[in-house]
């Protein structure tokens, strides 16, 4: 599989919630921009689009507070696979 880019991740996030500026917001979870339903939608999308399973241990606010953090998580999990 090709490398997953930051832009791929932003595109995925915009499909879940289109009106967030993912380039600047760094408190997506802590600032309550995303709720538990959005997290579910993101985990499902990561699984569908990138064929990556995110385990419960990785679903913590620090991994989901920004598009950059989500991108790093996805890249790390893709490498571990």
């Amino acid at each position: 599989m090709d490398d997953i880019t930051y832009e791929d991740v932003v595109e995925l996030l915009q499909d879940v919630e289109e009106d967030i500026d993912y380039d600047t917001v760094t408190d997506l979870v802590d600032g309550k921009h995303l709720d538990s339903f959005d997290i579910i939608a993101i985990i499902n999308a990561i699984s569908d689009e990138f064929d990556i399973t995110v385990s419960a241990k990785d679903i913590v606010p620090e991994n989901f507070n920004s598009a950059r953090a989500i991108h790093s998580l996805v890249v790390r999990l893709a490498q571990e696979d």
Partner: peptide, 15 residues
């Protein structure tokens, strides 16, 4: 139901 799906979707039982 949505809360139960949260546990299963996010792998709660695997943890």
């Amino acid at each position: 139901v949505s809360a139960m799906c949260f546990v299963t979707t996010l792998g709660g039982f695997e943890y």
